[in-house]
């Protein structure tokens, strides 16, 4: 069982209230808080200042690898045992474009999923307080903090419009 991280967990019914709380936290210089939501929201992303995910690099590298693998596989296998059929070139690009394309899509897709897994694992959620309502209709914000700061954080959440604030020890 992972040890739970001490902090404050707030629950919001209203998206503008959650955005106010996020902006207040950022104004205090906090970066290590976690926001839970049932669906992605541009409003939350703007409040959090989220940038484009680097997962696109995984897609690009996977796609390029697929094209190279397709080209390498077809050329090498054709030239490894040269067999002349119907006077056509032994290795030639046009019929091999299908393999280049299919492997680009295949490796591009699989590396994209691998990218999500790897990038998500960099920010583990084990031990962070969570409420099942966050996958339903509430927005949650968890701020890890020592006991001395709990009161101030709770007050800030209530002022922003949180419907439920609790201390996670």
């Amino acid at each position: 069982m992972a040890r739970s991280v001490p902090g404050v967990l707030a629950s919001f019914e209203h998206i503008d209230a959650a955005c106010d709380a996020i902006q207040a936290l950022r104004a205090q210089g906090r970066q290590d808080f976690t926001v839970y939501s049932a669906a992605p929201s541009h409003e939350l992303e703007d409040a959090l200042g989220i940038t484009t995910s680097p997962v696109r690099l995984f897609t690009l590298i996977g796609g390029i690898t697929g094209v190279c693998a397709g080209l390498g596989m077809t050329y090498w296998m054709s030239l490894d045992w040269p067999l002349l059929v119907g006077g056509k070139p032994i290795a030639t690009v046009p019929p091999y474009v299908v393999f280049l394309f299919e492997l680009m899509v295949l490796l591009g897709s699989l590396s994209t999923v691998a990218g999500v897994v790897i990038l998500s694992l960099r920010r583990p959620t084990t031990g962070l307080a969570y409420d099942p309502k966050f996958s339903d209709d509430r927005i949650g914000i968890f701020v890890p903090c020592p006991a001395a700061e709990v009161g101030g954080v709770e007050r800030m959440f209530r002022d922003a419009g949180s419907v439920e604030v609790r201390h996670a020890a």
Binding site: T34, S37, T52, S135
Partner: peptide, 14 residues
């Protein structure tokens, strides 16, 4: 899956 901002950031793009 918990729907954190980091998970959504990567998931939506992916």
């Amino acid at each position: 899956w918990k729907g954190t901002q980091h998970q959504w950031q990567h998931y939506s793009r992916a």
